[in-house]
């Protein structure tokens, strides 16, 4: 626990635990029951595990993968105690989740030498992109970084207005050209303004779009390309926002958004609800894209840096 203590303040840990309470109680509750009085893994346990994982939206393929790994382990380690099994599950799931570059996002630090650090936020409609940006702005600002936001969702009714309100709340500048402006030009202007004002981080909001809309996905590629004209290498982070309540369609979302914009980070929102967001395990594994942030509420503070060990610890610790 010592390691986690260092990374997470107690307050944050509590919030994460609260957010994950539902996941935790169902996983541990069922596994605990399944294990009572048993000294080795059996079919009944595997059935329960399968049910727990599948009903957490982990998906069949990933679930079978986890089960296979555990079965292989059991063949080696014949005698299991409950705590051994918990450790094993934790390790197997941790192995599936790629590590993220901790220096990048831990406690909302920014990499040295990249200024402005440009983040482009993408995702389907209604996953919480704008809210996540508002929270990110707040967190970066609290760490003493200068932040500029770009309102490139010029399509959805009142989206610019929504980002402007977040700008006021967090005391951060928002670059906007109103509704129906060309999103690529808004992104261009925002990155330019960030350079001129010597901002540390520039976050670009984009309109929600379903990943199967070819033209809209092409537009997204264009928005991304345009930023490179101002800052070579921008955007440094393409953050795909996934809603924890989304099922297996998250795979297609990740596939299409990655194809259009080379997504290199994930954010998982709405983890404070009953949804478990288990699909992110398979998505993160398949696309080798780390989960960077999790959203656990509607307040400005309710965004946390994702740490897989902490995440899994919260799933399995008592």
């Amino acid at each position: 626990m010592g390691l986690f203590e260092k990374i997470f303040s107690r307050e944050k840990k509590e919030k994460l635990d609260q957010g994950l309470e539902k996941t935790k109680s169902s996983l541990l509750g069922k596994i605990g029951k399944a294990l009572a009085g048993k000294s080795s893994i059996d079919e009944g346990f595997l059935d329960d595990l399968e049910e727990i994982l599948v009903t957490s939206d982990v998906g069949i393929e990933t679930t079978l993968k986890i089960i296979e790994r555990i079965e292989n382990r059991v063949q080696r380690d014949k005698y299991l105690t409950e705590s051994e099994l918990n450790t094993m599950l934790r390790e197997e799931i941790a192995d599936l989740l790629p590590d993220q570059d901790d220096t990048l996002s831990r406690d909302f630090h920014l990499p040295n030498g990249t200024k402005p650090y440009v983040i482009m936020v993408v995702g389907v409609n209604g996953v919480g992109k704008t809210t996540t940006i508002g929270k990110l702005a707040h967190q970066f600002k609290a760490k003493g970084h200068k932040v500029v936001l770009g309102a490139a969702d010029t399509f959805r009714a009142a989206a610019v207005e929504q980002l402007k309100i977040w700008g006021q709340r967090t005391g951060v500048e928002v670059v906007e050209k109103g509704m129906n402006a060309d999103p690529a030009s808004v992104a261009f202007e925002a990155v330019k303004a960030a350079c001129e004002k010597e901002a540390d981080v520039c976050i670009i909001d984009t309109a929600g779009r379903l990943h199967n809309k070819v033209n809209l996905m092409n537009e997204l590629s264009k928005i991304k390309r345009v930023m490179q004209k101002v800052v070579p290498g921008a955007p440094h982070e393409v953050l795909l926002v996934l809603d924890a309540s989304t099922g297996q369609n998250a795979f297609e979302q990740a596939r299409q958004f990655t194809a259009a914009t080379e997504v290199n980070a994930l954010a998982l929102t709405k983890l404070d609800g009953t949804a478990k967001g288990g699909v992110v395990i398979g998505v993160s594994e398949q696309f080798k894209t780390p989960v960077r942030y999790i959203g656990v509420g509607e307040g400005m503070e309710d965004l946390q840096v994702f740490n897989k060990y902490e995440f899994i610890d919260s799933l399995f610790s008592n």
């Binding site: 939206d57 389907v124 809603d243 989304t246 609800g273 949804a275």
Partner: peptide, 12 residues
């Protein structure tokens, strides 16, 4: 309800 909702649709 969002058509993309996963297992949680039942609870909600």
């Amino acid at each position: 309800v969002d058509a993309m909702t996963g297992q949680d649709a039942v609870n909600t």
